[in-house]
Amino acid sequence: MKTLVFVSLVGLFLHDTTAEMHSLRYFFTASSEVPNFPEFVAVGMVDDIQGGYYDSNTKRAEPKQDWMNRVTEDKADYWEWETERAVYYQQLFKVRLDTFKRRFNQTGGVHIVQWMYDCEWDDETGDVNGHEQYGYDGEDFLALDMKTWTWVAAQQQAVAIKQKWDNNKADLEYLKNYLTEECVDWLKKYVDYGRSSLMRTDLPTVSLLQKTPSSRVTCHATGFYPNRAMMFWRKDGEELHEDVDKGEILPNHDGSFQISADLQLPSDDWGKYDCVFQLSGVKEDIVTKLDKREIKTNYVNPMNPVIPIIAIIAIIAALVLLGLAVIGYKKYRGRKSTCETSSENSSELAEKLNPEPT
């Protein structure tokens, strides 16, 4: 079964905003015969933070951030309205999924249609931008060119659909108005509602890690917020692209994020290398020099079985104390048994000397 991931072009739009750029993105996924997964899911993201959610099981749009409840200040029935829209898209995507399957001469089996649209707004320059695109079974399918306002087919099976949608001028005009105006208006409201959260910045703890002396050096940053961040290695001030493996931004249990980047061990002067962490909204980078003395590891050389003397003393002391405790306990039990026996014998003697009257 194909993994439920957004198509490759969608990934290009995540984590690329600056401190001044804001985005409102919607992701829709319709699927067939996927076990333990709703047939339709809709997710709304404000500055890459999930703001709302709907699926075909719950049949209800709901906020995912406390500040999204403020939207009812401007539109009291907002969540009912969002639910109605989601139900409409659910029905629409059921039809489009069947249409795409016919284009590929498919019937049953696991199939997935994904749709993403967004608008972006620079709160300093006022510039706006937008995107809209479709994916099918994990591959790019159709994308809207906002310069020519025509659809671009990524696969041969999408050509007929492209031609049909290009001829629908009314729909294209609606998309133009929505992506450049209506969507931006909503984005500005959401940013205002969640400003304290969306503009929050927490700096990370950055560490250099290494499993063994011959393995790659990992630069690891954790505890930062928001998730719009970058990490890379430099040599002599120039970003390295070879011998570097960049990891994805991952969530922590407390709502913060972490990221790492691995560097192949350099053969030349280590002092030429440093790790750079950049966080959206923070002007200064966090730069960590590659220094052997700063690398953390739990590696123990198998050829050097020497254990720190303190550890040896602690282990021996613990064993001695345990032995003494066992010996003491045995002596105590022995004395107790002797006392109990003596007590029983004394009782028997007393009964013989002072028999009860019959």
Rank of each mutant, 00 (worst) to 15 (best):
I249Y: 11
G247T: 10
T222Y: 11
Y78I: 04
L208Y: 02
E33N: 12
W79I: 04
N36W: 07
I49K: 14
G247L: 11
K336S: 12
D274F: 00
C339N: 12
L265P: 06
E132I: 09
K169E: 13
T17A: 07
H111Y: 10
R85W: 09
M45D: 05
V128H: 08
T338Q: 14
T17H: 07
R102P: 01
P308E: 15
I327M: 01
I49F: 12
D122G: 08
K75W: 04
K189D: 10
E238D: 04
Y134L: 03
D55R: 10
L290V: 14
Y332T: 03
W121I: 07
K176Y: 07
T212L: 05
D47R: 02
K331I: 14
E340C: 06
E284M: 03
Y299T: 01
G328F: 11
L265E: 01
H111V: 05
P35W: 08
E181F: 13
T341L: 14
R234I: 06
D118S: 14
Q157E: 14
D274H: 06
G138Y: 08
R25H: 04
M68N: 05
F27M: 07
Q278W: 07
I286S: 14
T218A: 09
I295R: 08
Y89S: 03
N36G: 09
L97H: 10
C219N: 03
P35Y: 05
K246C: 00
R25Q: 02
L265D: 02
N105T: 06
T222D: 08
N227G: 04
K101C: 11
R335V: 03
G138L: 09
Y26M: 00
Q163C: 02
L198D: 02
L144M: 00
V300I: 12
R70W: 06
V206E: 01
V113D: 07
V5Q: 14
Y78R: 08
T58I: 15
L203E: 13
E139I: 06
G126H: 10
Y190C: 12
Y299R: 02
D47S: 05
F27Y: 13
S207L: 04
W186H: 11
R333T: 01
Y117T: 09
G247V: 10
I315S: 15
H220P: 00
V244M: 06
E348H: 10
E239M: 15
N167Y: 08
K75I: 03
W67S: 00
A154C: 04
L290G: 01
F257P: 02
F93Y: 15
S23D: 09
R335S: 10
A19V: 05
H15G: 06
E351C: 04
T58F: 07
M199Y: 01
L9H: 07
M230R: 09
L4R: 12
